[in-house]
Design a protein around this nucleic acid. Sequence first.
DNA 1: GACATGTGCAACCGTTTGGTTGCATACTCT
DNA 2: AGAGTATGCAACCAAACGGTTGCACATGTC
Lengths: 111, 111
Amino acid sequence: MKRDIFQAIADPTRRAIIALIAIQAMTPNTIAEHFDTSRQAVSKHLRILAECEVIKQEQKGREIYYQLEISKMKEIDEWLEQYRTIWESRYEQLDTLLAELKQQENKELKI
Amino acid sequence: MKRDIFQAIADPTRRAIIALIAIQAMTPNTIAEHFDTSRQAVSKHLRILAECEVIKQEQKGREIYYQLEISKMKEIDEWLEQYRTIWESRYEQLDTLLAELKQQENKELKI
DNA sequence: GACATGTGCAACCGTTTGGTTGCATACTCT
DNA sequence: AGAGTATGCAACCAAACGGTTGCACATGTC
């Protein structure tokens, strides 16, 4: 059961957890307080997120602080990059189209 | 069973389909040729992608051409935006740290 | 040492997922 | 009209998912 970053962010609860600990590191108990599921369910999500290396943990006494591994978010960004170039080129196409239309408009105005 | 874009891209086969039809519109049969699963399995993936509005279809006779709805990819980009600001600020922090180190180094050199 | 607290793990359970096969429907061509 | 092709849909199935409860194991505090 090899999981990747895309499966990690597929679940809305996990995205919420990511958003939570992005601001500051938190313990599982504190995180669980923000949801209406059991502490153990949250713990399972944390396990999955850790498996995908989206979060890292730091032990402080008997408490464990979970923190976002922001570099992992970049992987999504890198994956998106290929499509970003596409939608930018689409805009270029739109730009040239608009330019052509304007030129045509000008011609019509000249007549 | 309301699905969102994040569930759409969670499956590797679906990401491959997205990458395929990003280049040019394709029929289900043509798409299925690129995978070692059945045509019907691919059809199911297309159904999910269409449900999430990641792809759009165009009927041409008895063939249906599926094409990527690139604007939907932007939604992921927008979601990433909040984290992009974080990792950029991290870099700023790193920059100031490096600057401080360099300054300290200079001090040491002065002694 | 005794007790409370923070956490993870295992077992279980209903639902969803991703795949298969078989069949129905719609369009094209002769 | 009949044959062939492109596609979607339904039924089924094993595996994974997301949740629960109970328990074990550390680490603190008295």
